[in-house]
Amino acid sequence: MSALMVLLFAVSAWAQNKAVGVFYFTPILGHVHQSPTRTSPSLTTIQCGHPLKVIEDSKVIIGEEWSLVSVADWKGFVWKKHLAAKKPDCIQGRYPKFFDGLSLDLAELYYWGRLHDHWTEGQVKP
């Protein structure tokens, strides 16, 4: 009976969370958000190249601009435009010792991540 309960629980959890794939974070620094808005609180700060498991949750309905991700113990939201299928060429990767030497404190890491939530980016196409 208990085995059946565990199986039912596992099946319902699987149906609720469907893995879309692993994507990589592209800006220099950023945040996994509590809700899909640019000013929502940060659950955790992440760096360029960080792998994020994109999931679909039947109980969570979000706009096209955001993705639901699972990272470590967190489940939160990241701008879709900040995700890439291939590992990006990060500035930290190009200049690792220079970037480390900046010795950014927690506030700087936090604000640098927030900055990338606030940029409005675009390109003029012919």
């Binding site: 900055l115 606030h118 940029w119 409005t120 980016e121 675009g122 390109q123 003029v124 196409k125 012919p126």
Partner: peptide
């Protein structure tokens, strides 16, 4: 602004340019 600014840049012939705006 994304659409409006891109249209203005296109109108004055600044093509293939990228921009980032911070309020």
């Amino acid at each position: 602004l994304e659409g409006s600014f891109a249209t203005v840049l296109k109108t004055v012939g600044m093509l293939q340019k990228r921009y980032r705006i911070l309020a």
